[in-house]
Design a protein around this nucleic acid. Structure first.
Lengths: 139, 139
DNA sequence: CTTGCATCTGTAGCTGCTACAGATCGTATC
DNA sequence: GATACGATCTGTAGCAGCTACAGATGCAAG
């Protein structure tokens, strides 16, 4: 970060490069009210400030952790209230963790079913395939 | 299954009840060409046959295993060709298994990050929250 | 002044459904 | 035959969370 470079704010392309969030996605976040409407140049281009950069980083990290946009909105509301309580954030995160664990459990079941099916398969160039049979079975 | 009940085919509601696939979803599958266009009564209601019931079961099972609709289309194409080879099915399934394992691995990383964040949290009614801090950190 | 990339708005598409509204079908009962 | 009532019909729009255009401008360097 140069010392004078951002006196007039960051254009959207720089926001994108620094956070790794796609330009179209940044505009999308603005449209749905997750990012604030930034200042504009005389010509109409967006000019972001440092707080907005931090906010976008936050969104990106939270998305990376699998929070939905609505959950992120909730986190911002808590953070924006001066009196938010840490335990609300805690609870939201615990809920999210539970849903992640749930997904893991389901995927593991899947994994077992798929690998069982695969191990039944002789892999020959024949028209009898135990995998297709398993899927076609009516009972 | 009664012996005469389906002489004239299954109406969509029965297809739905037997397979557990939502009526709207069955019509959706038809629209995207995953289910064939069924016969119609004089009045225009859909009348399905047993093959179509099997096909819908197949879709439902494959969806349950996390195959995408496109992958299922691929499986049907293989099954519909008289000369499909079992090893193509095998390979598609192996690929799918790999993507399931990949998802599991990613979710496990997530799980660890979330549970670490949670264990940092004292849960107090204070405005310093290590969870929010972790998300807001710029570096 | 021109070149040329960056950005703009607006809209449509993606996956896999789901949810209407408003009309018609089909069957049982009177 | 009339009527009632659930099942089904078509068509369209919505959900999450983006992504991908088209066609018009902005802006900075040479």
């Amino acid at each position: 970060m140069g010392q004078f470079t951002n006196a007039r704010g960051y254009p959207i392309g720089q926001m994108s490069r620094e956070t790794g969030v796609n330009i179209e996605t940044i505009r999308y976040y603005e449209r749905i009210g997750l990012m604030p409407k930034p200042d504009r140049t005389a010509g109409g281009n967006r000019q972001y400030n440092h707080d907005q950069l931090k906010r976008l980083f936050f969104i990106r990290r939270a998305r990376g952790l699998g929070f939905t946009l609505d959950e992120i909105r909730g986190l911002f509301e808590m953070a924006d209230r001066q009196d938010y309580s840490c335990s609300e954030v805690h609870d939201l995160t615990v809920d999210h963790l539970a849903s992640v664990r749930d997904k893991i459990a389901n995927l593991k079941k899947l994994e077992k079913m798929l690998s069982d099916m695969i191990s039944q398969c002789s892999r020959g160039d024949v028209p009898e395939c135990p995998i297709l049979d398993a899927l076609f079975e009516v009972n």
